[in-house]
Write a protein that binds this DNA or RNA. Structure first.
Ligand SMILES: [Zn+2]
Ligand SMILES: [Zn+2]
Ligand SMILES: [Zn+2]
Ligand SMILES: [Zn+2]
Lengths: 391, 391
DNA sequence: CTAGGTCATATTGACCGTG
DNA sequence: CACGGTCAATATGACCTAG
């Protein structure tokens, strides 16, 4: 069944799309060390309660952690907001509206597609820093895709009947959907959940509808960037990471002209290159065009396999015209755990309250920074980042 | 403890205040037999779901029945509305906000002070009919008391700190409190619950406050009509019951000049007279005046004993000046189950779907109507009222 | 250190026995 | 007939353990 949680854990272990060097990460302004941001670490970004730790990419309390962990794999239980999807989530109201609580979780950046402990990726730490950097929820900015999404004809026809159900979770209704702007993995998480919402039949409704077909067709026609672009970082996001503005063009191969970023061939095993091709700003998306549809079986498999999604979209972007035959060879899901991706993210100690761990080999930060175009002071690199929340 | 549910069931079994003849009840227009009102019986008046029966004086579903039965005796669990006390309660939202659900229960007339099966009182049936008569929730009308309540100085000072807690149930905050108008037992239930809310310390707050003293003092100073006036029917309510307008004066002994109602001396045991003195329109309440306070112990006992409340208010009304010594002799709660009150409400069969029960002696309607000034056709009296909701 | 599992607790509402 | 008790189903979040 399409809506069941993924059975294998390999599915989410595809090669990391964005592989910024650890040096790039540490180049960021050390905002975590300011007392103000330290204080932020103590509050759940979803409900404001005292945080219990860094869960699913965000400092959250135990409750919101458990809620997100439970709910993300059981979206069928998320429905019923009667407040237009605009419920305020705080410590007292968090149990009142599951859709809005999940939306808040996603809006602050919680994600199950992120790395786990022991395979913590760089973007995870980056996100952690941006998480700390922004005291308030990100401003809600509509981008082109969101507008195209809502204005498209197919939405007005097919998807409308899916979302118009009274049981459809209002926070995820396209009319209420706003991209968070500049934080692609947040936007993508939101869209991903929204799509799953639309693909499942509304709760307690008959299953006569075939929302999977409609939705996948729509995503296909819309060149939906979520569809395999879990880590398509925007230029502004990269500039935030690097702490300085970057040039912005619309040329597909250079629109994220990271002057400080090396090319793909100059990276060591621990600091693989940034894959520029994967930095795909949503705002440069081409307007929707009606194209032939993929076979339904392939579409559903694509939805379940990030690797296939990536193959699909890479081919789709490279071909001007869309032909079903171009994708017959990727119809079978496969596990693609390359050695390179398995080694690029060694665990990094994020604690400062238990210094004995920093001396162990598996958690120690390399003594010398890898070669990088960016000049990084040794003092920054050697200083562990305090992510602990124990007082 | 003051806030615990009453331990003895005798407490609620004082003499019925309003003892309208069964003939008066049946004099009402037989609205129940119209298909439209029959349809109303099938819907829960709280949430709109299919009703499971006539529970606590209102047609409700099983859920709202259970909720009201649980919640009424455990008001400490009712708090936390974050919608200003204006949540819409329906089948889908009923579990989202306990305070608003309880408020809705009370607004449609649910009451635990009503008689149970086997001691079903006349007002219970009257209420049942009015319940059917009004398809929509009663319009919210502010009366004098409500205004005085909100404007009083003591509210602005003492009660404010009680109600200003973020945990105080907003639907019961005095600022949001509106009498339902013309349905005194509904208003009184609402006020009663509101008072209990204010007397309990807000949830998860320290108990440094002594809201009991403040609230009782306030009620004392305000001549709070709820305080022992559970069944103070208003003239309009009586006119609704009798199906015709009645004269309205402000003279205390005649303001409900029920031309059809006999005096208290002319009633048989099954149709005791209407106690005119208990018909006490809220609109005629005297403006608040500062008076000496009762001893706190007596106040709390009064709160727990309806009989003592009645004694208290009867004496209070008869004495122009308030003196603490006037109440020393009623300081000890007693059970006052008079034979008269125990016999005045024999069970009356309200079913029509199981006619075998109508033949049993304990549920049979008397063959001949009792003597009454109102002319009642035999056909109406002998026709059981259909209160069943089984289709 | 966190992700996920466990489990005590609270809430809900369908069902049923009693009076 | 309704009232109140019962209890299975569900949701929640504190706590624990593996990695
Ligand atoms: Zn939280
Ligand atoms: Zn909501
Ligand atoms: Zn209901
Ligand atoms: Zn509410």
């Amino acid at each position: 069944m399409l809506l069941e949680p993924p059975t294998g854990s390999e599915m989410m272990k595809g090669p990391d799309v964005l592989s910024i060097r650890a040096a790039d990460v540490l180049q960021m302004p050390p905002l975590l060390r300011s007392p103000e941001n330290k204080q932020m670490s103590h509050l759940c970004r979803v409900c404001g309660q005292r945080a219990a730790g860094f869960h699913f990419g965000v400092f959250t309390c135990e409750g919101c952690k458990s809620f997100f962990g439970r709910t993300y794999n059981n979206l069928s239980a998320v429905y019923g907001c009667k407040n237009g999807g605009n419920c305020v989530i705080n410590m007292e109201t968090r149990t009142s509206c599951k859709p809005c609580r999940l939306k808040k979780c996603l809006m602050v950046g919680m994600s199950k597609n992120g790395s786990r402990y022991g395979r913590r990726s760089n973007w995870f730490k980056i996100h952690c820093m941006l998480e700390e950097q922004s005291n308030q929820p990100r401003s809600q900015i509509e981008n082109e895709f969101s507008q195209q999404f809502n204005k498209s004809d197919i939405f007005k026809s097919n998807l409308d009947e899916i979302c118009s159900s009274s049981n459809f979770p209002l926070p995820f209704h396209p009319a209420n959907f706003k991209d968070q702007g500049n934080i692609p993995h947040v936007d993508n998480e939101l869209r991903s959940v929204q799509m799953k919402m639309m693909m499942k039949p509304p709760a307690s409704q008959d299953t006569n509808l075939s929302p999977v077909t409609n939705t996948l067709n729509f995503m296909n026609q819309m060149n939906h960037p979520m569809f395999g672009h879990h880590l398509g970082f925007s230029p502004l996001y990269i500039s935030q990471i690097l702490g300085k503005p970057i040039a912005h063009t619309n040329t597909p191969d250079s629109h994220t002209s990271l002057s400080a970023s090396p090319s793909s061939s100059s990276a060591g095993p621990l600091t693989p290159p940034l894959e520029v091709d994967d930095i795909h700003p949503v705002s440069t998306m081409s307007p929707p065009a009606i194209r032939p549809l993929l076979p339904l079986q392939l579409q559903e498999e694509l939805m379940q396999n990030l690797h296939l999604q990536r193959l699909f979209w890479n081919r789709k972007r490279s071909s001007d015209s869309f032909h079903e035959e171009s994708f017959h060879d990727i119809a079978i899901p496969e596990t693609h755990n390359t050695n390179q991706s398995a080694e690029q993210d060694s665990p990094i100690d994020l604690s400062v309250k238990r210094p004995r761990y920093t001396a162990t080999p598996e958690t120690a930060i390399p003594d010398s920074p890898p070669s990088t175009p960016i000049q990084i002071p040794l003092s920054i690199i050697d200083t562990p980042i305090d992510l602990s929340i124990r007082t």
